[in-house]
């Protein structure tokens, strides 16, 4: 079953951590990528800071979608990135998601209903 591992956290908080703490978080990602890579294909992406984002408003009749600067929703925590891969079941997905456990992010595991397309090897 295909699961997504979604990462939420405070925009910019990670950047303020000292290098050794950042290193620890990165090691979790590397370990997860290694473990996933040994099992088969997976997808992952880290999103840029929300200041680089624009948001398309819902379309109103007879008008193009309004494009606003900034991320969707003015919240404390933001969507930072994700992984997607086949797992046996939820327990296994959670086991893998634990690689990313840290004080600095909230990790959501959610089944994927449909997936398509290809993520570039090098963004």
């Amino acid at each position: 079953m295909y699961f997504s591992i979604l990462i939420y956290g405070e925009d910019g908080a990670w950047e303020q951590l000292p290098p050794e703490e950042q290193q620890k978080v990165m090691e979790g990602h590397k370990a997860l990528q290694k473990a996933l890579g040994e099992r088969g294909p997976f997808a992952t992406a880290k999103l840029m800071g929300a200041s680089a984002a624009v948001t398309l408003q819902p379309v109103t009749e007879g008008a193009d979608a309004l494009v606003l600067d900034g991320p969707f929703a003015d919240t404390k925590e933001r969507f930072l990135g994700f992984y997607g891969a086949e797992f046996e079941d939820l327990d296994e997905a959670i086991r893998f998601a634990r690689f990313l456990s840290s004080a600095y992010a909230r990790i959501e595991v959610r089944p994927v209903e449909w997936a398509g397309g290809v993520l570039a090897q090098e963004a």
Binding site: A13, Q16, L17, P18, E21, S101, S102, A103, Y104
Partner: peptide
Amino acid sequence: FGRWNGPAACWLRRPEISTWLDAQFAR
């Protein structure tokens, strides 16, 4: 690891707390 406002048993290791607090204060 886990939610900050979870039970005390879920609390973080000391150095991580102070790092995290500093980041919060700076933000």
